[in-house]
Nucleic acid binder design. Structure first.
Length: 488
RNA sequence: GCCCCGUUCGUCUAGCGGUUUAGGACACCGCCCUCUCAAGGCGGAGGUCACGGGUUCGAAUCCCGUACGGGGUACCA
């Protein structure tokens, strides 16, 4: 009988969804998909200072954009709610009561000042700096007296002293062993009555019956402590799988100075969900060491914890950009125009109505531009000259080099008379065959001829393919553009 | 300080003792194509598998140590 697979992603809503968090969520999601398990979203908002509902909404929206949908979570609910930590306080107290009854915890009346003092001494003497358990053996009478006197106190977990070490098998890192001498009776309830992280995360995972804890490796070192909580609760251990960090190009933790770190920024910059998904899946996991382009389908049918890498991975924006272009080239014209539309609107290059009315025109831009861009946000600057009517802004350097020359003038004149021909049907093939006669006619190299026309049409020495551009711009506008520059 | 973890081309990785002259992808270089830029095709360079010891007939692969990096060691999460 295989146990039910239940995994969770538990972000703190202290900011947008980070690339690292997205990958953690993705691995959890993929694992659940693969095994037909349940994926749970839990919001860890116990840090009331920095947590905001706006951030939660933002994280939710980024997860959805990436296609990482959950089966249980805030709003939608589920059988193990609530799914927002700040609403779970009664559960933490309930579990604590049980731990008190089973004598797994004890109150500690040491002041923070005293604790600090002891720690400093231990440090100076190079001894273990953990709590010395001085309150562990207080008699019932002493406890009662201190409590009645209203002495502030915390609650600590009573670790089994007879034990030698805490051992567990991490699904990614393999066997991990930490000597018991390195663990202390850590605090699970603060003086102010709030529970600590290492305690609540366990309570949540136990009560939500999480079978696999897949999370960042910054939690690896705390896992032994958490195992102590599981054991105190008499709960079975989940499988732990820790994921190493994602780093910036300098080998330091990925941060703002490495560029965009939040999923929502990538969305805005015009990365495709499928591309980011593919890239993130590959950042620390591999199918076979050969395959780099993988559909969600492929990933979810093959994802496994044992192929996750232990090494921290450097995030490479260039590879992501390459991958995004691959996906752009695969998406097709109609999907492209739909994805491009928001950018057209925000730059005021077109209205929704124009796009709808000239759908096929916009779609025919797709094959021209797609192999020259890596993100959707780069499209407009490449195509704006196609949408500027009779006028085109001229790049100074291009103008100087291609238009303000003796050859340039001749090319433009010849071109103008050729294109003015009423017989010429205005399409790429006809325009091309007509203009192809020019180099020989003028005794100039093709490159010189076409670069001149290109600058007249597009305003720049670099543009989308010339003849296709001319067809899309239209005869009238093209003639107007050439006339304008040749009459200078 | 102490504890835990990691270390294969610049980067992501394959590799689980012999099939490896260490494979693939991005980036890089060259050639072809070509109206520019791209895209594409073909080819190339790039790794003494962090270092030092072992174990073994044989090690990137197993063991020990060192160095470097990361994490933990909080009444942070």
């Amino acid at each position: 009988m295989s146990k039910e697979i239940r995994v969770r992603f538990a972000p703190s809503p202290t900011g947008f969804l980070h690339i690292g968090g997205a990958r953690t969520a993705l691995y959890n999601w993929a694992y659940a998909q693969r095994l037909g398990g349940t994926f749970i979203l839990r919001i860890e908002d116990t840090d009331q200072e920095r947590s905001t509902p706006e951030n939660t909404a933002q994280i939710v929206s980024s997860l959805k954009w990436l296609g990482l949908t959950w089966d249980e979570g805030p709003e939608m609910g589920g059988a193990f709610g609530p799914y927002i930590q700040s609403e779970r306080a009664p559960l933490y107290s309930e579990v604590l009561e049980q731990l008190k009854q089973t004598q797994k915890v004890y109150p500690c009346f040491c002041t923070p000042e005293l604790l600090n003092e002891k720690r400093e001494i231990a440090q100076a003497e190079k001894r273990y700096t953990g709590y010395d358990r001085s309150c562990r053996d207080l008699s019932e009478a002493e406890v009662e007296q201190l409590t009645l006197a209203g002495t502030p106190h915390v609650w600590r977990l009573k670790l089994p002293l007879e034990r030698e070490s805490v051992d567990f098998e991490d699904a990614v890192f393999g066997p991990i062993s930490v000597p018991m001498s390195q663990l202390d009776d850590f605090i699970i309830l603060r003086t102010d009555g709030t529970p600590t992280y290492n305690y609540v995360v366990c309570v949540d995972d136990v009560l939500m019956q999480i079978s696999h804890v897949i999370r960042g490796d910054d939690h690896l070192s705390n896992t032994p402590k958490q195992i102590m909580v599981y054991e105190a609760m008499g709960a079975p251990l989940p499988v732990f799988a820790h994921l190493s960090m994602i780093l910036g190009s300098d080998g330091k933790r990925l941060s703002k100075r490495h560029g965009a770190t939040s999923v929502d920024t990538y969305e805005q910059e015009g990365f495709l969900s499928d591309a980011l998904f593919n890239y993130l899946a590959l950042l620390g996991w591999s199918l076979d060491g050969q395959t780099t382009l993988m559909s969600r389908e492929l990933i979810t049918t093959h994802f496994s914890l044992d192929r996750i890498s232990k090494n921290p991975a450097v995030f490479d924006p260039e590879k992501l950009a390459w991958m995004n272009q691959v996906y752009l080239k695969e998406m097709g014209a109609a999907a492209f125009v739909a994805a491009w539309e928001p950018y057209l609107l925000s730059d005021g290059l077109a209205t929704s109505e124009e796009i709808a009315n000239r759908q096929s025109w916009f779609e025919s831009v797709y094959p021209l531009v797609v192999e020259r861009i890596h993100t959707l946000s780069e499209v407009n600057e490449k195509v704006s000259y196609l949408l500027s009517g009779n006028y085109v802004e001229l790049d100074e350097k291009s103008q100087e080099k291609c238009l303000q020359t003796e050859e340039g003038g001749r090319v433009l004149q010849a071109c103008l008379s050729l294109l003015s021909n009423q017989e010429l049907s205005w399409n790429t093939a006809s325009i091309e065959s007509a203009l192809r006669t020019l180099p020989e006619q003028l005794g100039l190299k093709p490159k010189v001829v076409f670069q001149t026309i290109r600058v007249a049409i597009s305003g720049n020495m670099v543009s989308l393919p010339l003849f296709e551009s001319m067809e899309l711009i239209g005869k009238e506008a093209c003639l107007a553009r050439i006339e304008r520059v040749s009459s200078r």
